[in-house]
Computed example of a mutant assay.
Amino acid sequence: MERKLLLECQRNDRNAQRKVYEKMAGRLYAVCRRYLKNDEDIEEVLADTFYKIFTKIDQLQNPETFEAWARKIAVNECLQKLRTNKVMFISLEENFSHSSDGTAENISFEKDIMSLLSFLPEGCRAIFNLFAIEGYPHKEIATMLSISEGTSKSQLNFARKKLQELLVNQNI
């Protein structure tokens, strides 16, 4: 992100904020989509994310890290939404069903994987995203979600197994 544009955002320049929003909205929406299923929740979290970005942008020390900083805010807002919604982690013995709409054939592998993530319960999906995509260690995930480190590990294992099953069933 351009240093000048970020400085203008620090001065509450609405045009600069709009430009930053236009550049980042799609990327941050994709981050939120990995954690949340409901479009209304995603839109709410995205709005909260941009509010936090623009009200705390003066805390950004290095403009080169803006995108990572913004993504971290989005992840934290998603986790807060999951906590607010009191997402329960599933029992490892619990089974859940899924249905295929058959649209996976002509879309990219990444979209296939992202659509498969939507079949995971929100708690498992959050842990999978935090560990496999965002790179957080289990200890930090446990702290972020107020769960034990063992729960984080077992939910990640459960998510991986379910994703493997879904991949086999989708022939991806």
Rank of each mutant, 00 (worst) to 15 (best):
L28N: 01
Y51C: 12
A104T: 01
R160W: 03
D48C: 10
F119V: 12
N85Q: 13
I147T: 05
K72Y: 03
Q61I: 15
Q61E: 15
N157W: 12
N157M: 14
I57P: 03
T65H: 04
S99L: 14
R160T: 12
E2Q: 14
K153A: 10
G150P: 00
K161C: 06
M1C: 07
P121D: 14
N85K: 14
N157R: 13
L60V: 13
K86M: 05
R14P: 14
Q10A: 03
Y21V: 07
K86Y: 09
E110D: 14
F89Q: 05
A30I: 09
D58Q: 12
L82Y: 01
K161N: 10
M144T: 02
N15L: 05
R14H: 09
C32D: 09
E44N: 11
R18G: 00
F131N: 10
E149P: 00
L92G: 08
I73G: 06
I127C: 13
K23R: 11
C78A: 14
C124V: 02
K72F: 01
E40Q: 12
H98A: 10
R83A: 11
L156Y: 11
L7H: 06
Q10C: 09
L166K: 04
L36N: 04
E94K: 14
E44V: 05
G102D: 11
E22N: 04
E77C: 09
Q61H: 10
V87N: 05
Q10Y: 00
E105F: 08
N95H: 06
R34P: 01
L167R: 06
N157D: 15
E140S: 09
D58I: 14
S91F: 10
F50Q: 03
V75P: 01
F89W: 05
N171P: 00
L117G: 06
L167G: 08
S100V: 09
I42Q: 07
L60S: 07
I113L: 14
G26V: 02
D13E: 13
K111W: 05
Q10I: 02
M114T: 11
Q170N: 13
P137K: 05
E77M: 11
I141H: 00
N85V: 03
T55Y: 10
A16Q: 01
F131S: 11
S154E: 13
L117V: 08
V20W: 07
K4G: 03
L36C: 06
E122R: 05
E44Y: 08
K72Q: 09
E94G: 09
A142I: 05
M88L: 14
S108F: 05
